[in-house]
Design a protein around this nucleic acid. Structure first.
Lengths: 239, 239
DNA sequence: CGCTGCATTGAAGGCGGTCAAACTGCGTGG
DNA sequence: CCACGCAGTTTGACCGCCTTCAATGCAGCG
C-alpha cells in the first residue's frame, strides 16, 4: 500500500527494508474517497496524516467572494497533510480531484518514529520541505511568468513527479482535472486558461483529451516554462 | 544571540531552558551582512543553516528576462535556510534587505539534534512547516486577491510576525524595504504597487515614511486583506 | 430525448504592465 | 553653501493580458 511513498522517498535517499517495514506498520487503516469529496476539512484537528496511495488531490482555500485557490496538487505517494502533524489545525481543506485511495498514519505513531527513527524522521521532514520548494516555484510562476509559461510549468512539474511514482508511460499520463480546477490552480479564469491551453496545443507541445495528457515536445515545454527540476530534489543522497 | 529564535519557538510550544541551551550551543559563529549582499547563493550546498538574528532578508529567484520574484520575507528569529539542511542544494538565493546580523548552525550539529532531541527536532521541523503555510497564504493572495488586498495581507502578516519577536511598539515597526523590492514580493510592477499603496494611505489604514510603518486601522487592514492569522500557528501547545 | 457537466468561442471592459518623465531627499564634493 | 548625482518615489499616458458575461457546442447518461 505504501509503495508509491517508498518510490518517492527512495528517489531522494536509500530507504532500508527495515524502515520500509516500520513505515508500513505505521500506516494501516485505508479508505476510498470519490472525486469531489473532502479528504480533510479546513479547521479540523486530525489525529492522523493522510497518505495518498492513488489518485489526485488538491489543497485549497475559498475566499469570501467564492473564488477558490488551489495551493498544491498531490499525487500517489504524497502525504497530503503531513504538515498537520506539526501544525495541528488544518488551515485549508483537501479535496479529492479523482477517486482517491488513501491510508492513514496516526500522529501518535509518527511521534514515536520521531523518538526512535532519526533518519526516517528526516525523510518525512524532507517531504514537507519539498512541498515548500514546490510552493515557492508556484509563487515564482504566478508572480512573474506569463499564463502560458505558468501552465507549461505545471505540466512539467507533474510530468516529473508522476514519473517518480511510475504513473507515466510513453510520454502519457492520466490527468483527471477539469479545466475549471486547473484554472483554480493557476489563479486564472477558466476562459483564459482555455485559450492559453490552445496555444500550447496548436504549437504541438502536448495533447490533452479523455483525461490523458501526452507530452509531444518535452524540450519545448521546458523552454516555455523555464523549468528546472532541481527544486524537486531528485538526487539520491544521505539526508 | 538566539533570543528571537526562542521567542519564535516559544510562541508555539514550551521550550525548556535545557533545550534553549542546546540550541544556543549549536549556533555559535556569527556574521554581519550589509543590505544588498547575498546571505546564501543559489546553487550552493551550504554545510550550515543561517539564523537571522536581526534584520530583514528575502528568498528570491531571478528569471531569464531579468524579472525577480521574492518567495519569502524573513525577519529576526527566522532560520532563512533551515530547509537546506534537508534539501542540500539551494534552489534559490537569499538576500539581505537591510543590514543583517546572522548566526550559523552547522548541519552536523543539527543532525546530532535529530538523533538525540526529538522534541527540538519537531520544533525545527515545525518552523519549516510554518514557512510552507506562509507560502500557501501568498499563493492564495497572488492568485485570487486584488493587488490592494494582497498588499494589505503582507502588512498584516509582517505586523503579527514582528510582534512575536518584539519588533513592534505603538502600532509601529521598521520596514526597510524599498517599493521596488515590495513589488517583487507581490509580483506586481513598481508603478502599480505605488498606486495601490496610495489607496491604503488615502483610506487612513496605515502610514509609511522613513522606513517606519504605522498601522492606523488594524481592523480595516485585516478586512481589506481578508486576513486570518490562524496559519501562523501562534498557539502554545505540545508539538 | 433532454439534461447536465464540461469545453469552446466571442465581445467588451478593467486591472495591472510598460514607458517615460518629474520630483524628492540626501550624501558628496567643489 | 551650492551643485551634482543617485536612489527611491510619484505621476501621467497608453497598451495589453486577463476577467467577466454570455452564448454555443459537445459528449455522456438516465
Amino acid at each position: 500500500m505504501i509503495e508509491p511513498l517508498i518510490l518517492n522517498l527512495s528517489a531522494r535517499d536509500i530507504i532500508t527494508p527495515r524502515e520500509d517495514a516500520l513505515l508500513s506498520s505505521s500506516i494501516k487503516r485505508e479508505r476510498w474517497f470519490v472525486a469531489g469529496e473532502d479528504l480533510v476539512v479546513q479547521g479540523t484537528r486530525p489525529s492522523y496524516s493522510t497518505l495518498l496511495v492513488d489518485g489526485f488531490a488538491a489543497r485549497y482555500k475559498v475566499l469570501e467572494n467564492g473564488h477558490r485557490q488551489i495551493t498544491a496538487i498531490h499525487i500517489a505517494g504524497d502525504f497530503v497533510d503531513l504538515h498537520a502533524f506539526q501544525l495541528k489545525t488544518m488551515d485549508h481543506g483537501i479535496l479529492a480531484l479523482s477517486p482517491c485511495h488513501v491510508a492513514f498514519a496516526d500522529h501518535s505513531n509518527l511521534k514515536i518514529l520521531t523518538e526512535t527513527e532519526p533518519h526516517l524522521t528526516r525523510m518525512l521532514w524532507l517531504s514537507t520541505v519539498i512541498d515548500g520548494a514546490i510552493h515557492r516555484e508556484w509563487i515564482v510562476a504566478m508572480g512573474r511568468k506569463s499564463a502560458k509559461s505558468q501552465l507549461a510549468h505545471i505540466f512539467c512539474e507533474l510530468f516529473i513527479r508522476l514519473q517518480v511514482v511510475q504513473r507515466v508511460s510513453d510520454q502519457c499520463f492520466i490527468f483527471p482535472l477539469s479545466q475549471a480546477v486547473l484554472a483554480d490552480v493557476l489563479g486564472l479564469s477558466l476562459v483564459h486558461l482555455n485559450k492559453t491551453l490552445q496555444k500550447l496545443r496548436q504549437e504541438d507541445v502536448l495533447t490533452w483529451s479523455n483525461r490523458v495528457i501526452t507530452i509531444i515536445d518535452w524540450k519545448k515545454l521546458q523552454d516555455v516554462a523555464e523549468f528546472d527540476q532541481a527544486y524537486l530534489n531528485l538526487t539520491r543522497e544521505p539526508r
